[in-house]
Design a protein around this nucleic acid. Structure first.
Length: 862
RNA sequence: GCGGGCGUGGUGGAAUUGGUAGACACACGAGACUUAAAAUCUCGAGGCCUUUGGCCGUGCGGGUUCGAGUCCCGCCGCCCGCACCA
């Protein structure tokens, strides 16, 4: 039996595709367009098997849509700026650029080896000056349009590394690398005003614009935006030496204002800071709050703590003076950083009130409760009910009281109803080298001056690799002095370039548009981009459900307002794929071992070197630390690119995790060989067959055609619906049906050619090299990747007879095959006449017979 | 705590959305080929029983229905996201 020589096939057909320029995206004008995009990788140095699964899905869709008559855009590039390159520079002494570009070369080769149908002519890296120069142009246009703002913001400062840290680089209040306690510093930073667009970003989640997105991703975005409606109002303050005579608070429960028992401010609220200047104990309290505040789970357990300020605030509706506390549970970043507290109807406020012995006044009476004797114990009541103890609101339902309270406060001029978002404006300044320089110049006379468009791009200056061995941003040091020191475009005086670079999320917020159109003098050509966009199918990991996808949606809106795009939603359909997992192995000493070191026999595992038994750990996401990583390259060497592509899609639904197993990869490899072997038995079959189906086909050949066309119909639908695992199951089934093919006469020749061509074409999106090999053997025209998708003949999908399950009392008792157009009465009679049925109906009264044509017959006896 | 999802053989998973539960694959068993093994091919397989037949069976308990893996109610368990958001 001939073996599929995958390595030779891969080389041969990859070369053929390249020579034919088969995957160049071009708009013919008369075919529908299809843009399929997978989230581009960070050039860490190696393609991970998870990438292979992600891109295999995209490739199936791309090849399928091409065969179905679409003009397909399927690009690939690299998200190439970012910290790992600087870390590598620190460790290896290689410049971040050198490291990044050589990694990309390696990864591009690895991707090509797997045979993805990418249009490499559109390849881009975000660290190419061609790319980030255009990003600077976008920045300047956004600035001009007022989409960008400059504000003071706090950053995590590592005093040893002299650098700013991202939140996730701060571990227990210390820098992840230096271990030094992190300081909070206030810097002037650039912000994209995403909150301005919060309403539309939210609206699109529900108005049908994102129907093609998974519900859970939309839900995550909804929560992240966190819209709430409420009241922003001021309480007049009473006390000595106040910086401000009002305290502004935000609440979503103005209906409970009569239940107020104190006011609270966050530890870094200006009022708290003001009093801390003259009160060392308060200063100490604030510092304690800030030290404990940030760590994750500590928050949940943190006890409510407060510090009383020597001030009171006047209640708006009665004469009470409310005490004011600095409280550790109030967030400075939400609302105004200050609240009024209603302990009866808010758990946090209640905990606090019990601790500091403050009054608890119930104002919402739960429906069906008697006011007499109603009291709040340890649990705040947050449900609906009727207002009590609430002056003008008494007797109203809580939901009526809410607008009434807002109206009253507005009348009084003490505040107004507002909408509030949890979403913050997007700070994009990074005090880093390896990113897109922010194109502005700081002039002592003229302040901030945007770099004039004709002076773009602001190219990242070359600095020697040793610059990364020292703490701090090289752009701030002598290495970059000539670059940094410049002249003011406005007044011509000495000026200084901004040394901050952009958050790398900016880079990935518009790459999908640049793939569609890459002119040299502007970010995108509006006309060209609009022909490809939106992305019809976007595929990537769930880890990007919030930030990347939200930023890209935001960017599309900005770009639309600048005239670059004609859509505000860049991704019409989104699919989030599951990870590739693998079993873990731990030896007697507790060290993780790699799959290559282990031999699995049944349910036990043994070390290959030494043979001692080894513990099989849980199946987990592949990671270096657990040593359960398999290399796509090695797997491709062993089983071939086709088999690994096939396997990562075959075993689980694409949204779910799939476990990599050697046995599974071998199964895919076996499938490839069976297909190859089958086709090898009929060389030239496609050429020697009649062009159309001979008349009066014998019954067995009709049955064979039915099987083939049934498979075509279901596989087509499965791919369309992203059910790759089912499509693959149907391919196995089809292969199983294709036994005993023959070319003995014209009828057989036709049926065999039809069956093998269909099989080949449907295998092609999954195993493209094998498909080309088979296509060539069969004598198909041109390349298989350009062949049309097979079409299912409706007439063969329908049969004249139907097989019905026959039940008695809902239990299966037999099967009945009968003409499809048989009237219900005939079906009923035939079913009742069946011996297997009569055994159960004998001596009983048939009360009812339910006939569902095409499905079942159910006989009810009584 | 809030929100979302899931629970089917030894395993991954199918089931036209209320109509033959377990497709397809992996692992397993038997057989063929072979001096032998591997590879390959063929066949078998949810459990139980008194085995030409029958009963039970989709986390557990109830319900609706001629009929429930699917719908409803109540539990149990697991996963994911958000989390002091006023």
């Amino acid at each position: 039996m001939a073996k599929y020589a995958f390595r030779a096939a891969e080389e041969k057909w990859q070369k053929a595709w390249e020579e034919a320029d088969a995957f160049r995206a071009e708009l013919s004008g008369d075919r529908p367009k299809y843009y399929v995009l997978e989230m581009f990788p960070y050039p860490s140095g190696k393609i991970h098997i998870g990438h292979v699964r992600n891109y295999a899905m995209g490739d199936v869709i791309a090849r399928f849509k091409r065969a179905r008559g679409h003009d397909v855009l399927h690009p690939m590039g690299f998200d190439a700026f970012g910290m790992p390159a600087e870390n590598a520079a620190m460790q290896t002494g290689k410049h971040p650029g050198e490291w990044t570009y050589s990694n990309m070369d390696v990864m591009r080769d690895q991707l090509k080896r797997i045979g993805f149908s990418f249009d490499w002519s559109r390849d881009l890296a975000t660290c190419d000056v061609d790319y980030y120069g255009q990003q600077q142009r976008l920045f300047l246009e956004f600035l001009e349009k007022g989409f960008i703002d400059r504000q003071e913001a706090q950053v995590n400062w590592d005093p040893v590394d002299m650098t700013v840290l991202a939140n996730e680089q701060v571990i227990d209040g210390k820098g992840w690398r230096s271990g030094a306690p992190v300081e909070r510093r206030t810097l002037n930073q650039w912000f994209f005003k995403i909150v301005e667009r919060a309403d539309d970003l939210l609206a699109a989640l529900d108005d049908g614009r994102l129907d093609g997105w998974p519900a859970h991703v939309k839900e995550m975005q909804r929560n992240w935006i966190g819209k709430s409606k409420g009241l922003q109002m001021s309480f007049p303050l009473n006390g000595d030496g106040l910086p401000n005579s009002w305290l502004e608070i935000y609440t979503t429960r103005p209906d409970t204002l009569y239940g107020a028992s104190f006011l609270g401010v966050s530890p870094d609220h200006p009022l708290a800071k003001h009093f801390a200047k003259s009160d060392p104990d308060l200063e100490k309290f604030i510092q304690e709050c800030q030290a404990a505040g940030t760590s994750e789970e500590a928050i949940e357990k943190a006890e409510k703590k407060g510090y009383r300020l020597p001030v009171t605030g006047k209640h708006p509706f009665d004469d009470r003076e409310l005490p004011v506390f600095v409280a550790n549970f109030i967030l400075s970043t939400y609302g105004t950083g200050a609240i009024f507290a209603c302990p009866a109807h808010d758990q946090r406020d209640l905990d606090f009130a019990r601790k500091y012995d403050l009054s608890v006044i119930p104002v919402v009476l739960p429906t069906g409760t008697d006011e007499e004797g109603y009291d709040v114990a340890d649990e705040a009541y947050v449900g609906p009910g009727t207002m009590i103890n609430s002056g003008f609101m008494d007797g109203m339902k809580a939901e009526e009281a809410l607008p009434a309270a807002i109206a009253r406060i507005e009348e009084m001029g003490w505040g107004k109803g507002t909408t509030n978002y949890r979403l913050r404006n997007w700070g994009i300044s990074r005090q880093r080298y390896w990113g897109c320089p922010i194109p502005v110049i700081h002039c002592e006379k003229c302040d901030i001056v945007p770099v004039p468009a004709d002076q773009l791009p602001v190219e990242l200056p070359k600095v020697p690799a040793e610059a990364f061995k020292e703490p701090g941003n090289p752009l701030d040091k002598d290495y970059a002095k000539d670059w940094r020191e410049t002249t003011c475009p406005k007044c011509g005086g000495a000026a200084r370039r901004e040394t901050d670079t952009m958050d790398t999320f900016v880079d990935s917020s518009w790459y999908f548009a640049r793939f569609a159109s890459q002119p040299g003098d502007k970010p995108v050509d509006a006309k060209e981009a609009s022909r490809w966009l939106p992305v019809d199918q976007y595929i990537g990991g769930i880890e990007h459900a919030i930030l990347h996808l939200l930023y890209a949606r935001y960017f599309a809106r900005n770009m639309k307002d600048c005239g670059y795009l004609d859509t505000d939603e860049p991704f019409a359909r989104l699919f989030t794929q599951g990870m590739v997992t693998h079993a873990t192995y731990k030896d007697a000493e507790g060290n993780w071992r790699t799959p290559e070191e282990v031999e699995v026999k049944g349910s036990k595992a043994f070390l290959i070197d030494g043979g001692s038994e080894i513990a099989i750990g849980p199946i987990e996401k592949m990671s270096k630390s657990k040593k359960n990583v398999v290399s796509p390259e090695e797997m491709a060497d062993t089983y071939g690119a086709d088999a690994i592509r096939f396997f990562v899609l075959s075993d689980s639904p694409p949204e779910r995790d799939v476990e990599w197993t050697t046995a599974g990869a071998e199964g895919a490899w076996r499938f490839a060989n069976r297909v190859y072997d089958l086709v090898a038995g009929f060389p030239g079959a496609a050429k020697g067959a009649p062009a159309s189906c001979p008349a009066d086909l014998p019954g067995d050949l009709v049955e064979r055609r039915r099987a083939v066309h049934g498979a075509i119909a279901s596989i087509t639908e499965d791919i369309e619906e992203f059910r790759f695992n089912k499509a693959i199951a149907r391919l196995y089934e089809l292969l199983g049906h294709l036994k005993g093919l023959s070319v003995s006469d014209d009828a057989n020749k036709f049926v065999t050619a039809e069956a093998l061509s269909a099989l080949t074409c449907m295998v092609a999106p999954f195993m493209p090299h094998l498909a080309e090999e088979c296509w060539e053997t069969l004598g198909g025209d041109g390349l298989c990747c350009n062949a049309d998708w097979p079409k299912a003949e409706e007439s063969l999908l329908a049969t004249d007879t139907q097989t019905l399950m026959v039940q008695v009392q809902g239990k299966k008792r037999g099967e009945l095959t009968i003409a499809k157009d048989a009237p219900n009465a005939d079906i009923e009679a035939a079913a009742l006449a069946m011996p297997d049925v009569q055994r159960f109906t004998e001596g009983k009264n048939v009360r009812k017979v339910i006939v569902v044509p095409g499905r079942i017959v159910n006989i009810v006896v009584g």
